[in-house]
Design a protein around this nucleic acid. Structure first.
Lengths: 252, 252
DNA sequence: CAAGCAGTCTTTGTATACAAACCGGGCATG
DNA sequence: CATGCCCGGTTTGTATACAAAGACTGCTTG
């Protein structure tokens, strides 16, 4: 009962390994449509940066590349357009949405607030088991705080934030936050490599958990906002240094 | 330069007559695709409640009804699914997403926070002309505060909130907020009819504007949060009274 | 030599055709 | 009488075909 209606069709991130999106456990049908598979694949390539912003996405080309007809490709592109990952002008095809620096700053600002909101709610609403789970993810973060294997920390970090999303007890908020996080992912990956960034991140996580432990919603919210904002700042700094960042490019 | 990339393809509602999101004036191409027109039309019918939650959306039926082939209908449905307005199970067609009471409460919670955030940012960032514009919309609200013509107040109210969105100087945030507002629209319309609700709303607006006038971001944020939360509360009250609200329904 | 224009060519938008999967009813059977 | 299977209808998913609208190239012309 209660038609859910707020989880998207193909909400990415299934095999997050340790974490595993706990909320999205709605067992989707086991017959994925071609269009959905394509959507995930293209989404992945955009997220990983294999398709940089501004790339022209030719329907026939993609169709040939994936060995399918244009129809599912078209639907995948349409879906991505609705999600904002690609931009389509009426008779001009689709290009992957290259975000300007201004766009990114705005999105990071919203991201910080959404995460902060999740944290505030989590501080008030988390159950005992959820708190335990959160502590575990914090522990994992410290375990994985090894600059030589940034992927491990990336995973642990993700699980930590997912635990907080779940703790907010607001699946809609969690989904929105997840979506935005996903969208910003390619721009966040870069700044994990900063010197000492991982240790700082861990300390910030610990601070957040401490505030949640004490059910101090305001402190927790503030700590999380700072945590995300710092990331955004380091990103902006990094972006400002590279002049050739997002201002590209017609095509090959 | 600066590929925008964050405005959707078909920001809904161009010729909605009364409603009409005013901000979507981004001069889109003058050749709207059939699929986009369909999307808008179906979206409109969902928003106005002409298609209640759980309605089965048959592709061939819609195609016949609009006098087009299945392809654009299919794309419109796909787009709506990505936006979360309809839900599609892989081989089972699309139904309009009926929101459970729990879903609605969660979404209203996020809505309140997003509006509050817009307001906080607006209090800090609005230019002089934007402030003037805001004052004008407030004035219009008082002008239209006539319970006999709820549509006029609906319009004025919308313009007021749009002015605040614009004042946030964060187009991404504005777009997200607008989207959620749109999504909740059918559930908000009902509670404007409450006795004295319009006057209360006006007073709350005035309070918000006063806080913005004084550049008191915190007060403004709180006032807006309360403003939206009150709406949500009256809705929840109303919904709780009607037992047969959204609690349906597996299928036919 | 530059600019405008026309023709072609690619690419998208739409329609239609075909195949596969789900839903339902009816019938046989334990 | 209940249950399970089979079969047909309906509907979605995918592929292909056709039409129109930009984009590009090359030519003509001032």
């Amino acid at each position: 009962m209660a038609t859910n209606g707020m989880n998207q069709n193909a909400s990415s991130a299934e095999e997050t390994g340790t974490g595993g999106t706990p909320a999205g456990a709605a067992g989707n049908g086991r017959k994925p449509r071609l269009a959905d598979r394509l959507r995930c694949q293209i989404e992945e390539e955009i997220a990983t940066g294999k398709l940089p912003g501004g790339t022209r996405l030719d329907e026939t080309g993609l169709a040939r590349r994936f060995g399918v007809s244009r129809t599912p490709v078209r639907e995948a592109l349409s879906s991505l357009a609705s999600a904002g990952l690609v931009e389509t002008r009426p008779r001009q095809g689709a290009i992957v949405a290259g975000l300007s620096l201004s766009d990114l700053i705005q999105m990071f600002e919203v991201m910080a607030e959404l995460e902060a909101l999740c944290t505030r709610l989590a501080a008030r609403r988390m159950t005992a088991t959820e708190r335990q789970q959160l502590e575990r993810t914090l522990h994992d973060c410290f375990e994985a705080a090894d600059p030589t294997r940034p992927n491990d920390y990336y995973e642990a970090n993700l699980a930590f934030h997912e635990a907080i999303y779940a703790g907010s007890h607001n699946t809609y908020l969690a989904e929105q936050t997840r979506q935005l996080r996903n969208r910003l992912q390619p721009y966040r990956r870069t700044q994990l490599t900063g010197p000492g960034r991982i240790e700082t991140s861990c300390r910030e996580h610990a601070e957040i958990v401490e505030a949640i432990r004490q059910a101090d919603a305001i402190s927790a919210e503030g700590a999380m906002r700072r945590h995300v904002t710092i990331q955004a700042d380091t990103f902006a700094e990094l972006a400002a240094r590279l002049p050739q960042r997002a201002a590209d490019v017609d095509d090959a």
